[in-house]
Design a protein around this nucleic acid. Structure first.
Lengths: 254, 254
DNA sequence: AGGTATTGTCCGCTATAACGGACATGTGTA
DNA sequence: TACACATGTCCGTTATAGCGGACAATACCT
């Protein structure tokens, strides 16, 4: 199973290359030139040019601006809509979020892992005057999130260390996060069925997260509340109870 | 440019095959087995099996249910979100829809072509008690829609006939639509800068559509209002004026 | 203007991915 | 039970897609 160290001229499969291109554009969050993509990925320029051309023809990429820059295409948006409308998990989650925000008046989120990063799949914004919001779908280092403690809790210590890139053990501000302490929090969170802490993204919010289990009992997603710190302190028990109650009908149905 | 008629054992490129699979699943709107997909597409079973396996590993497809059925994967949803958040056209359209529905209290839509079909890309629902809604992203035969008259209006007569499949010249109920009459409506709609008719999808709504032009002056999308027939009759001029005003800032920016 | 760097295009080579067909397994029916 | 059919897996063959490198065109400095 272990491959040789000296990569002896691997020739990449087209689909993998296409995937790399789309992921690179998603991370960049802005259009790029074929050559930029090639250098960023360390891929042959000619291959990237040909692949970009083919993806443009299919609508997987769209031409941006006047020059040669490209970005994710409209086809991907249409596929995304189809996924959204046909995913039982997301439909159930939507109902759960509605219920949570209706009851608590706080921002609620449905989150999962995307590879080795955390992402918000759906969120329900509160009707508060000062609205707390976040970017849906944006990959975030796992250790920076409350949900992250739960989403990796089915893995062993070594698996967790192998999954999370070392550079992700840092706060948004750049301060290091201790892997041992993180893993300790992971174990405690899974045990308690909840994790909460003051957000690392700002200084005025507190995040609660509870697990949503799949049919085999593994943590497949989380439900979260992001609340102003004062609210969080005042309503901690009610918020946690609300989250757990909302997660109940989702277990085994994700 | 013209290929030989007798397809002499064409071997399909992997990316095209993957695209065919995803499109088939999108049209089916439900999970399918690899074999179903193979027979539906007329593709080799072994190739489809291998491709499905690779796409599952990449997250482009997800396993559905317990058995071997697959559907569009979460990755596609995440790409769709990235497109949505980075598309200037959709952002502008969102603002236009908000304005239209705020002013008219009617359902407004932003539409475009997806290949040879019409799709709703974004919509803004009215706050009416009897809400009129439609499925976003679902491909619909061009002749069944008011927007369709505008979206093909940059093509010549022959190009229009070549683009639209013969079976699409039918109402949802199955009644035939005359291609010549359709093309006449196309020309009149482009001339007037608006098209409206009673919806073919039901018996109680009326649809208005105005074009949104790209930088080269071609119709790249449409803005629409779907209203109860009585409202449409009572407010025709105001609705058309509202649509044209909302479309104005979008021209050349799509 | 001259020179350097960057980007897009073209083309032959070859590793390999799509294919076809055989095999194995499971499922429903007579 | 036996048969027919559908589905997943494996493997050798061969068309071809990804690669590397050369070339051309353009932009950006000095």
């Amino acid at each position: 199973m272990i491959k040789g160290e000296d990569a002896p001229k691997r020739r990449e499969h087209g689909l993998d290359r296409a995937m790399d291109l789309m992921e690179a554009l998603r991370r960049a969050r802005e259009p790029m030139r074929p050559n930029e993509l090639a250098t960023l990925l360390g891929a042959p320029r000619s291959s990237v040019h040909e692949m970009v051309g083919r993806m443009l023809a299919l609508g997987l990429l769209d031409a941006a601006d006047g020059d040669g820059r490209v970005f994710l295409g409209r086809k991907l948006y249409l596929f995304g809509i189809a996924y959204l409308e046909s995913s039982r998990g997301l439909r159930l989650a939507e109902a759960a979020l509605e219920r949570i925000t209706a009851e608590t008046r706080e921002l609620s989120q449905f989150c999962a892992l995307d590879g080795n990063r955390y992402v918000v799949l759906r969120q329900r914004e509160s009707a508060r005057p000062f609205r707390i919001s976040a970017d849906t779908g944006q990959p975030i280092p796992i250790p920076q999130t409350a949900s992250g403690r739960l989403l990796v809790s089915d893995l062993g210590d070594d698996e967790i260390r192998a999954l999370i890139p070392p550079e992700d053990f840092r706060t948004p501000a750049g301060a290091p996060i201790d892997p041992d302490g993180f893993i300790a929090e992971v174990r405690a969170a899974r045990q308690a069925g909840v994790f909460s802490f003051d957000s690392m993204a700002d200084t005025f919010t507190h995040c609660f997260a509870v697990p949503v289990e799949d049919a085999s009992g593994r943590v497949a997603a989380t439900l979260c509340i992001v609340a102003p710190i004062d609210d969080a302190n005042a309503n901690r028990d009610a918020y946690v109870a609300c989250l757990k109650a909302a997660a109940e009908p989702l277990h085994g149905r994700i």
